Computed example of a mutant assay.
Amino acid sequence: MAHQPAAIEASGLEKSYGAVTVLRGVDLSVARGSVFALLGPNGAGKTTTVRILSTLTPPDAGRARVAGFDVVTDRRRVRRAISLTGQYAAVDEMQTGEENLLMMGRLSRLGRTEARSRARELLERFDLTGAARRTVGTYSGGMRRRLDLAAGLVGHPEVIFLDEPTTGLDPRSRQAMWDVVKGLVTDGVTVFLTTQYLDEADQLADRIAVVDGGRVVAEGTSAELKERIAGRRLDLVLCDVAAYERAARQLGVRLVWSDADRLTLGVATDGSAAHVRALLDEIDPERRAVDRFTVRSATLDDVFMALTGHTAEGESRTAEGDRRNATGEKETAGV
Results as ranks from 00 to 15, higher is better:
G97L: 09
R249D: 15
P5L: 12
V91N: 04
A201W: 04
T73K: 12
L149K: 01
N325E: 15
Q203E: 11
Q250A: 15
T308I: 09
G266R: 07
L39W: 09
S108G: 12
S34P: 06
L101V: 07
K46L: 06
D281F: 05
V78W: 09
A205C: 06
E331A: 15
L123E: 05
D92Q: 08
A274N: 04
P58V: 02
K330V: 14
A248F: 05
L279H: 01
D301R: 07
V78H: 07
L102P: 01
V276F: 04
A274K: 09
L153A: 07
E121S: 10
V20I: 14
A44I: 04
E14N: 05
R323T: 12
I208L: 14
I283E: 08
R215Q: 13
A312M: 12
L128T: 08
G266A: 10
V303Q: 09
R145K: 14
V66R: 08
A150I: 09
T49V: 00
A298N: 08
G45T: 07
Q4V: 13
L265H: 05
T135E: 11
V303L: 10
K15T: 00
D235A: 15
E331N: 10
T264A: 13
L225S: 11
D284M: 07
R174V: 10
R65H: 12
R51D: 14
A150G: 08
L279R: 05
A90M: 06
T55L: 05
D127C: 03
G155E: 04
R77L: 14
R79G: 00
G142E: 11
V154K: 01
Y139W: 00
T294E: 15
A312D: 06
R134P: 03
S258H: 14
R106W: 08
G309R: 10
P5A: 10
I229L: 15
L279I: 12
R296I: 06
S54A: 15
G45H: 05
R317L: 15
V30I: 15
V256F: 01
P58W: 01
R232E: 13
A298M: 13
S34F: 06
G97T: 09
T167G: 07
L236R: 03
A6P: 07
R109Y: 12
R232V: 03
G43F: 03
E313S: 13
A31K: 14
G43A: 03
P171N: 07
T57K: 02
D163Y: 05
D270R: 10
I8N: 08
A326H: 04
T190H: 11
L236S: 07
T96D: 04
S297Q: 13
W178G: 01
